[in-house]
Computed example of a mutant assay.
Amino acid sequence: MSTSTPRTTASRLQSRLDHLERLRKEQPGQTFVKAVATFRRIYDQSNQPSHILVRRRFVRRSVAIEIESDHDRRPRLKPPAQTLIRSRGVAYRLYLVLLAAAQCQPGGRFSSRLNYPIRSDGDEDIALINLIAPGSNPRPGTAYRKGYRQMRTEQVYNALDLLADPAHVLLERLAPPGPPVRLNLEVGPRPDQDPQPWKRPGKEAFIAIPIEFFSMGWVHVLTNSEIAAWLMFRDYGQIGLQETSDSFRLLAHDRLSWYDQSKEVWDTHAMLSRMGLMTSHSSPYLPADEDGPARREGTLFQVTDEGLRQNALRQALNAVAVTKDGVVGLEDLARR
């Protein structure tokens, strides 16, 4: 049995601060600036769409199912986004970036086939290794024989292998200068058909992601859980192409039956609010009466896109630092 001490909230926040600081450095393979600049080069060659469209069924079931509680572990088919957030590494972020790149082709075209190489010899080239910001954490005193390009190449290959397993992408490894990547429909194939090449949503219900989510670097600084929650709140709040949603409450029953997202994912609304991507206000408890115990109406949310125009790395660093300052010492104080 493990005797390791569970990490405190403060230590987890400090680890995240360290990760964000590494993204800010100009060290090869870690820089946030390179990933953002590479995507902007793709965007500048396109018709510059204001939003990237993702099929609603990527994050939400088409038909709700009955789930008893967060502790309900019965096997069930989950929305693709809910499955992807569990993947380690850069797979989830890379897939979203690839969906954005597919909608930012020269001349306003939309293509399921992305002919960008995995790696290139030039730092300014458009290659998949230059579209990610992993913020790697080399162990002190460790001498790596592989160069940073080789290590990032392996990260991208590992991510594409993860995406190929549920048929999100088709990887043509033997095609020069390759391998080009073909995106499949983000909702996955039906049981009775082969994976279908991606195409931009037409009459299907979709979630609109403002281009600033990519061009300002939010895709690189949010955690997988925060991205999943943000997409869930965007869909449930029906923000569409507007800049601000109406106020809404997300019931636990709907969170589970439609999105199959955990309470831990829902809880990230607090950090998303500190970063300026939404607002959340918890209602006060109503006093107990003859009809039942003390209760409250729940948390009132509103999604706001104005904050996406801010530098994502700076906003994330500030939000995590403020959160850490608010919890440092609380664990020790509680034990007294």
Rank of each mutant, 00 (worst) to 15 (best):
S2I: 14
T3I: 07
R7H: 14
T8A: 09
S11R: 09
L20R: 00
R22A: 07
R22K: 15
L23H: 05
K25P: 06
Q30P: 02
F32Y: 13
F32I: 02
V33Y: 07
K34S: 06
A35Y: 01
V36S: 02
I42M: 05
Q48D: 11
Q48K: 14
Q48A: 09
F58H: 01
R61F: 04
V63W: 12
I67V: 04
E68R: 12
D70L: 06
D72I: 11
R76S: 10
L77K: 10
K78A: 12
K78C: 13
A81S: 13
A81Y: 00
S87M: 15
S87Q: 10
S87L: 15
V90L: 14
Y92H: 05
L96D: 00
L99G: 00
Q103K: 09
C104P: 01
Q105E: 14
P106R: 11
G107H: 05
G108C: 11
F110A: 03
S111H: 10
S111R: 08
S112A: 11
N115K: 10
S120W: 13
D121V: 05
G122M: 13
A133P: 08
P134I: 07
S136R: 15
N137D: 15
R139D: 15
T142P: 03
T142Y: 06
T142K: 14
G147H: 06
T153D: 05
L160V: 04
D161M: 13
L162I: 07
A164N: 08
A164W: 05
D165A: 11
V169D: 00
L171Y: 13
P177F: 12
P179A: 10
P179L: 06
P179W: 01
V181G: 00
V181A: 02
R182E: 06
P195Q: 13
Q196S: 15
P197T: 03
E212Q: 06
F214P: 00
S215Q: 05
V219Q: 00
H220S: 12
I227P: 01
A228K: 01
M232P: 00
G240M: 03
S245F: 05
S247T: 13
R249W: 04
L250Y: 03
L251H: 14
H253A: 14
R255Y: 09
Y259L: 10
D260G: 09
Q261P: 00
E264R: 12
H269W: 02
L272T: 05
L277R: 02
T279G: 12
H281W: 15
H281V: 14
P284L: 03
L286S: 09
L286R: 15
L286P: 02
A288W: 05
D289K: 10
D291Y: 15
G292Y: 11
A294T: 15
G298P: 06
G307K: 03
R309A: 06
R309D: 08
Q310I: 04
L313T: 02
Q315P: 04
A316P: 05
A319K: 01
A321I: 12
V322I: 14
K324Y: 07
V328K: 03
L330D: 12
E331M: 07
R335V: 11
